[in-house]
Design a protein around this nucleic acid. Structure first.
Lengths: 123, 123
DNA sequence: CTCCGACTTGACGTTGACGTCAACACAAGT
DNA sequence: ACTTGTGTTGACGTCAACGTCAAGTCGGAG
């Protein structure tokens, strides 16, 4: 199939697919006239990339998963490198959540304090 | 004082201060020779800006706080517009935290599933 | 033949908060 | 006088993940 069909079926755009190719993430064969040619395996890769980035993974983080599929594994997270990305991302998320909690509490305290000052006595 | 001193005492850089000026966030008087001249009140504004952006507020969000101080209030959050920013940010944070929780749980589930597959039977 | 849709490459735009560099002027210290 | 430090403006670079536009090519339908 050509790039337009892959984009449609993969739930993305032709621009994104060309971008992935420019990163070496999704290389494409070329037809005689220069047009990109993809197959069902490529569609699988696109789905893998999109589902991961949809969750919040960076494009670079999807590389091990794509490579894993390309190596013949049935899932992208069957390889150690992919699992490692999972772990790293999990730690990042926990860290981020912790920090956001702290910030939220800080903002909430500031807000309450400001409201306190605006009506000093009861009411 | 001049821009270098303000940057040092405000915990930032001269580039940042010029940038703030370009946004109209921190206008500066000029000396006869064209150099920017600041006073202690400006330092106060810089501290306000930095402490807010340090928490995660966008520069534009600090504008009401800075204006509030410039209007003579003792704190930057004494004005309604500032409090409104607090509220908005608080809602944003809650929303962000909720989404991150969902993502984290999703990633954790994926990770556990992947580990399950790597050692199918006990152990 | 003409028209349309899909394809190609290349270049620039977007968002935020500056960093970095160039090329120059002015101030202070020795 | 010379050097060093600090100041000025202006322009371009950074990061991510593409969007948008331009100008042209290719294939098939009518």
């Amino acid at each position: 199939m050509r790039i337009g069909e892959l984009a449609r079926r993969g739930g993305t755009t032709t621009r994104a697919l060309r971008y992935y190719e420019s990163l070496g993430l999704l290389p494409a064969r070329r037809a005689a006239n220069g047009q990109r040619e993809y197959d069902e395996d490529d569609l699988r890769l696109v789905h893998e990339i999109r589902s991961l980035t949809g969750i919040g993974f960076a494009l670079e983080d999807t590389r091990p998963f794509v490579q894993c599929l390309r190596d013949g594994h049935t899932t992208g997270d069957a390889c150690a490198a992919s699992v490692e990305v999972y772990r790293r991302k999990l730690a990042e998320l926990d860290d981020c959540i912790t920090r956001l909690h702290a910030v939220r509490d800080q903002v909430r305290a500031q807000l309450e304090e400001a409201e306190q000052r605006s009506r000093p006595c009861g009411r």
